[in-house]
């Protein structure tokens, strides 16, 4: 199996966002995290690219992503005051999409900051 080395990778575990990590990836797993702290190391090694979970769940039962997206849209459109919450462990691009979605459904958008 080939070793994929990524230099200057960015760790998003804590707010430090260290961007000098060297990652060694083998197949679906990260095997080495140079310069990462103990928290960063467990973060990178914990997340694999394996298919461990179903694509989507509706009412606890496995479903397709397409169905789950339609169901999510139904719920958000039907709600009078939907809430979009979290946004901590997603990219800025995702956050922009989320703001746009919140505006479209006329809801509240909030992050961990308010906790």
């Amino acid at each position: 199996m080939t070793l994929n080395i990524v230099k200057n990778a960015t760790c998003t575990f804590c707010g430090c966002v260290c961007d000098d990590i060297e990652l060694h990836a083998e197949g679906e797993k990260i095997v080495e995290t140079k310069r990462a702290c103990s928290l960063g190391e467990s973060w990178f090694k914990h997340h694999t690219a394996e298919r461990l979970f179903p694509d989507a769940l509706i009412d606890g039962h496995p479903a397709t992503v397409d169905d789950a997206i339609e169901r999510a849209a139904d719920y958000l459109v039907a709600a009078d005051m939907p809430l979009v919450y979290g946004l901590s462990n997603v990219t800025c691009e995702t956050q922009r999409e989320a703001v746009s979605l919140a505006e479209m459904v006329g809801g509240v958008i909030d992050s961990h900051t308010s906790l």
Partner: peptide, 26 residues
């Protein structure tokens, strides 16, 4: 800041809505 990109959430909400968090668009 504790979580990865919570600062980004503040920044993105600030430049899109004018407020950093807890924004009501109802």
């Amino acid at each position: 800041r504790g979580h990865g990109n919570v600062t980004g959430a503040d920044v993105v909400m600030r430049y899109t809505t004018g407020y950093p968090f807890g924004v009501n668009l109802c």
